[in-house]
């Protein structure tokens, strides 16, 4: 795609701005800022990625991946309470949720540990893990707040913290995993995912694109399952005191 063609597609921006203006949605300013940010951020990351792909250094690649995990853990906890405490859990959960499936992909030879392959694939994993973990944390907090009395009754019956709240932990994990499970069920019917679309647009055969997409689906499913499970099980204890009392946060 040429720059001219890209510029011509920008006419679509004015469609959105026109709707916002005529319907008094008052999003014009945010839209313009969003568009500028998207162009600047993507251009910068394009330059950075070009440089990283060129130097092809494993240490630099690993540092980039760690930075991505760190940023994702900050975003996943931004709406929760006790952010500092949650950030450590979030970092470890997303790290494990990324490292395990990525290791499987590398060991099985599906991808190589080179920046041009590891960074974009990890980006997909980390992004999905981040969203799932944010949902899990929120659901866990809502569950503990709305089921406070039930947990206390169970503790009074001599239940451990885990036994008293296991159904709430499981519900939180389920909530975190639900979007990826739902999207799996509509793959190919409702949506053609970004990676598959990208490969097809880049001239690869649909068969190869589908193979990669199936691999990505497996990877995302395991990443989200690992991240949400570790996140929920590592977090639920903060809702209890050392004396096995449930506390309001």
């Amino acid at each position: 795609m040429s720059i001219t063609t890209l510029l011509m597609t920008s006419i679509l921006i004015f469609v959105a701005l026109g709707i916002s203006k005529s319907q008094k949605i008052h999003l014009e300013k945010e839209m313009v800022i969003g568009i500028i940010r998207a162009i600047v951020q993507l251009s910068l990351i394009g330059l950075v990625l070009t440089y990283i792909f060129e130097i092809d250094n494993r240490i630099v690649t690993t540092v980039i991946l760690m930075l991505m995990v760190y940023n994702a853990s900050r975003v996943a906890t931004k709406r929760g309470k006790n952010k500092e405490e949650l950030k450590k859990v979030a970092f470890f959960s997303i790290f494990a949720g990324t490292a395990i499936p990525m290791s499987v992909l590398i060991i099985t030879g599906a991808i190589e540990y080179v920046p041009s392959q590891v960074i974009p694939v990890s980006g997909m994993v980390i992004g999905n893990a981040m969203v799932a973990l944010g949902l899990t944390f929120k659901q866990l907090h809502d569950n503990f707040t709305s089921n406070f009395y039930e947990i206390e009754i169970k503790l009074a019956l001599g239940a451990t913290e885990r036994v008293a709240s296991i159904h709430l932990i499981r519900d939180s994990i389920r909530t975190g995993m639900q979007p990826i499970v739902d999207s799996m069920q509509t793959l190919g019917i409702v949506q053609l995912p970004g990676m598959m679309t990208g490969l097809i647009l880049a001239g690869q055969s649909p068969v190869l694109a589908i193979k990669y997409q199936i691999m990505v689906t497996f990877m995302l499913l395991s990443a989200v399952a690992i991240t949400t499970s570790i996140g929920a099980f590592a977090t639920y204890r903060k809702y209890f005191t050392e004396e096995k009392q449930v506390k309001r946060i």
Binding site: Y149, E152, I153, L155, A156, L157, G158, A159, T160, E243, K244
Partner: peptide
């Protein structure tokens, strides 16, 4: 606390 609560029951 767990063995205590087994022996000392509480009705809310």
């Amino acid at each position: 606390p767990i063995s205590l609560r087994k022996e000392v029951g509480y009705v809310f």
